[in-house]
Each structure stands twice: as C-alpha cells, then as structure tokens.
C-alpha cells in the first residue's frame, strides 16, 4: 500500500547538533530514505512538525535555506514536552518530520529591491532561512541590512553566522542587546530593537522589511517602520500559534478566518491589519 497517510512523518537522522544559546539548539536533519530526499522540496518561510515518538510533535520553521540542498535544519528552545525530549537526543538519533507546510516569503517578487531584516531573540530562525536564501541569490537584490537583537549576548543565536554576515561587505549587520544584557566584550549596540531601528533610520525607498520577533518587539517595531515610510504591503512577518496537524484541520491555529498553518505563517502587515487580535 502506498503511504498517503498525511500523519506519517518522514524518518530523519540528526546529522549535527549545534548549541546556539542556553537551552537553544540547532539540528541538521537528513532523510534516512533516499527516495524521501529526492521527492522533498520546500521554500523559504515554510515549517514542519517534528516528532519524538512517544512524546508527540512540535512545530518549528525550517531554519535552513532551500538553496542548501540535502538537509534541513531547525532551531528550537527547550520549553515543553517535545522540545525537552528533542534536546536529550544525540547526533545519529532518528526523529520524524512532516512538512513542508504553509506559505512562503515571496522572494521572487523582491528582485531588484533592498532588503531590511529585523529579528529579535529566538525569532531569528525563520529569518535565517530567508536571509541565506537571499544571500545565496545575492545578485537578485540590492542592499541587504540585518538588524538582530536579543535580551543578552548569550541569547544571540547563530553566532558563527552573525560573524560571517558581519564579515561580508555586501551585508550590513547591526546587532544589539537589551540594556543590561551586554558584557564587557560586546561590540554591538545596546538598546531595544525598535529604538535601534529608529536610530538607523533606513530608507523605505524600494525596500522590503521582514520582521520576526516576540509580540512586544513586533508591536513597537511596526510603528517605527510606518514612520520611516514603509507601506503595509512591503512589511512581512511570520506568525505562530499552537498547532497540531499543520494543514488546517485540527482547528486551533486560526486567527479569524485564516489558518496560520495553511494560509500563513508569512503575512504582510496589510494582511495582519485585517486580522483580529487572536495571535
């Protein structure tokens, strides 16, 4: 019988584990079955359901770029039952993965534009996929600016990649930590993301802004972007809500008439403004 059961995950092997920050890890996952690997493809912005059998499933975005073929990556913070058991796994262990689900960042439509990425804390992973995707197709875009903030220096994730982006002449990286989160060696900025964004005052001319972060950061960042002249159609973000199925059936992740899993997770600010405040 051909497997068309939508609940059966792919079998994935944990190829590499990176400790990103306290309680935050990145898994690099490879398909155990060649056939699955050859059939699988995804686009930036999409997410999946990651299984630890016996514990359940947890929802995270695919944090790697589709331009990096042969594997997918996810970054998660230990919080609930599934993420805690994921964190106990070792390289070589097997987990389940269902996906990809959800919509995408429309990077095709961003050709010839400046890109402004704004991320906070553990919300860099969904952004990392689209950043690498765009950097791997660098010639398609004009200026690339990344503003990334975290509560403290130790909470910054993807430190190696931050260094890599920092070293690139074709990327303008600004990192910041919340006041009090700096350490003596800290060379970045100190201040909340919206404040730093205000100081940077990037031009909204021909620019797409992509914002991911905790609700409080999002709340204060949108007005700054508006002030800078960004139109609602040119500001993108990703939402998350509690999910079980990932494909619009289990009924819990909807915000008004849209399912975050099926119609999102990527939304423009224009779309967000039409949604009720249930996220």
């Amino acid at each position: 019988m051909e497997n068309t059961n939508i609940y059966v995950p792919y079998k994935m092997k944990i190829e590499k584990i990176t400790e990103e920050a306290p309680f935050v890890k990145t898994f690099r996952l490879k398909f155990v079955n060649e056939e699955d690997a050859s059939k699988f493809s995804f686009r930036t912005g999409q997410f999946g359901e990651y299984s630890v059998y016996g514990e359940g499933e947890s929802t995270f975005c695919i944090a790697s770029a589709p331009t990096r073929e042969g594997y997918i990556e996810c970054t998660f913070r230990e919080a609930g039952r599934v993420t805690k058991s994921l964190a106990n796994l070792d390289e070589g262990d097997v987990i389940g993965f269902r996906g990809p689900y959800g919509n995408i960042f429309p990077i095709e439509e961003w050709k010839g534009k400046n890109l402004l990425f704004i991320a906070g804390g553990i919300a860099l992973p969904p952004m990392r996929s689209v950043i690498w995707n765009c950097l791997d197709l660098r010639e398609n875009f004009k200026d690339v600016t990344i503003l990334y903030g975290a509560r403290s220096v130790s909470d910054l994730v993807y430190k190696h990649e931050l260094a890599e982006w920092n070293a690139r002449p074709d990327v303008n990286l600004v990192t910041t930590v919340d006041p009090g989160g700096e350490d003596p060696d800290w060379k970045g900025k100190v201040g909340f993301v919206p404040t730093i964004l205000s100081e940077m005052s990037p031009s909204s001319e021909n620019t797409i802004a992509i914002v991911c972060g905790p609700p409080i950061m999002i709340k204060f960042t949108f007005p700054v972007l508006e002030k800078l002249g960004f139109t609602d159609e040119n500001v993108f973000t990703t939402l998350e809500n509690r999910m079980k199925c990932g494909f619009g059936k289990c009924g819990r992740c909807n915000v008004g008439k849209v399912f975050v899993c099926k119609d999102g997770p990527v939304f423009t600010l224009k779309q967000m403004k039409e949604l009720p405040n249930e996220y």
Partner: peptide, 14 residues
C-alpha cells in the same frame, strides 16, 4: 471536527 494528536507508549511500542 477539531482534534488533538497524542502519543502513547507502552514499553517499546506506541
């Protein structure tokens, strides 16, 4: 039609 998904393991099987 809303539903939950739950794992239950007994020994090595679930």
């Amino acid at each position: 039609g809303c539903f939950d998904i739950q794992d239950e393991t007994k020994g090595k099987n679930g």
